[in-house]
Amino acid sequence: MELNKLISFIEQTGRFTTKGVAEIGFGASLMWKSIYWIFMGKKREQTVRSSSVFAQMMEMGVCAVPIITVMNATIGIMMALQGIYSLKMFGAESQVVIGVAFSVVREFAPLITAILVAGRSGSALAAKLGTMTINQEIDALNVMGINPVRYLVAPSFIALLIMLPILTFWADVVGLLAAGLYICVELGFTMNVYVDQVFEVLSVDDLMHGLGKSVLFAVLIVLIGVVNGASVTGGAEGVGRMTTRSVVHGISAIVIADMIFVFMLTR
């Protein structure tokens, strides 16, 4: 009986692993196909439509601006609060600008923005593709000679690759501004002094560090959304399950990729 349990455990582990590897392979092939259609679409007489790209940019990017503004402003203020509190111990409150500037631009703005977009758009993508799969809409596209990757995935890819860095840049500005407002009131700076200090502390490299990460996050959000959406089985319940999964996986992937990215670039 013990042996049977062990065998079944090994079997489960094996199945789980092959499933995971298959999913990563599916994601990679989707990415390759998207790149193929973006560049070869014209030759295959199926161009990726700019109208669908703009529609996605609107949906994934512009419509996310309000929530991203609110969240990043809040995080900026929170950083200023915590920074002043902890630096007070050394009597070095005026150094708070350094901490806030670095942490917002290098870490919090890209991370919070990506997490919000994963929650909004990654899940929407999974739900949309999942519903289309169970309603045979994907089959219908195929038999009409319309490649689903070209029609559905590639536009989202281009849109998010453009919009997520822009949103992240906006998040940088909002986060720093909100932190600045609090710091000025609390420490009696003028806004000019604060802005000067921020520019003194930050280099273009810091900004690019954050924006570079957002490009990586954009790829992850789209791939995880699409892979989960396309793997839906079992009707409406399946769509719900995979949508949840896409958010959980998306956020986990973003956080882990973030850590690896920082590890590679800061050491």
Partner: peptide, 22 residues
């Protein structure tokens, strides 16, 4: 794939549930 794409333009399919893009 290219030949199949052209062939598919000569084929019409009406699915059971319609499969209209929602």
């Amino acid at each position: 794939p290219m030949e199949f794409q052209f062939l598919r333009r000569k084929i019409g399919v009406a699915f059971q549930g319609g499969a209209l893009l929602s």
